[in-house]
Design a protein around this nucleic acid. Structure first.
Length: 183
DNA sequence: GAACGAATAGGCA
DNA sequence: TGCCTATTCGTTC
């Protein structure tokens, strides 16, 4: 049962993003969109797949009512898109996912900024050594891209693999992270 | 119970 | 490299 819903919409260096928060933490996040309207459309698409939670709406919350956590997150995300090596130490609501998805997403969240893992390596880290393909499915169900860095999971041969929202986003995020990492 | 992927490994040209 | 096939596995319908 959802008791509180908060939403944020703001502009980053790469475009407009919307985040949705439930009591347990960040529930969904969009990738940067060209306009506020497109960002809202993107978040609605994500939330429409939230089948366990049918009746809910997305209210607008004035900026002054956002609590510290939301402001903290906004700063982190702005820094991230300004190419700073950000660690998203915020609570994420994963109550929607299956045990397998939970383990996989946790393994992915542990991947450091600027580095990558293969789907197979993630499957091993999550405790399911042969489930590389299923890892792809779980990654695709992730509602909080960037915070749970599913873009850091690529194919074992170095190719990018797939991505829910256009593969261009995956490439863009990896480029963004690699651009400030010293070798 | 069958079909579907954001996969992988091995084989062959 | 590139393409093909068999194998694998959680999720969804």
């Amino acid at each position: 049962m959802i008791q509180h819903i908060h939403t944020q919409i703001f502009e980053t260096a790469n475009g407009w993003v919307v985040s949705v928060w439930f009591d347990k933490g960040l529930a969904a996040l969009t990738l940067p969109q060209e306009s506020p309207g497109e960002a809202i459309y993107a978040i609605e698409r994500k939330l429409s797949s939230w089948k366990d939670r049918n009746a809910f709406f997305v209210p607008d919350v004035p900026a002054e009512e956002l609590d510290e956590l939301l402001l903290h997150f906004q700063k982190l995300l702005l820094d991230y898109y300004n190419r700073l090596p950000v660690v998203f130490n915020i609570p994420v609501d994963l109550s929607w996912c299956t045990p397998f998805q939970f383990h996989v997403l946790n393994a992915i969240q542990a991947i450091p900024y600027g580095s990558t893992l293969s789907y197979r390596q993630v499957s091993i880290a999550a405790g399911y050594p042969k489930a590389a393909r299923a890892v792809g499915n779980a990654a695709g169900s992730n509602l909080t891209p960037v915070v749970i860095p599913c873009h850091r999971v690529i194919m074992h041969n170095g190719k990018l693999g797939g991505f829910s929202d256009k593969i261009d986003f995956k490439k863009m995020l990896l480029d963004l992270e690699s651009s400030n990492v010293r070798l």
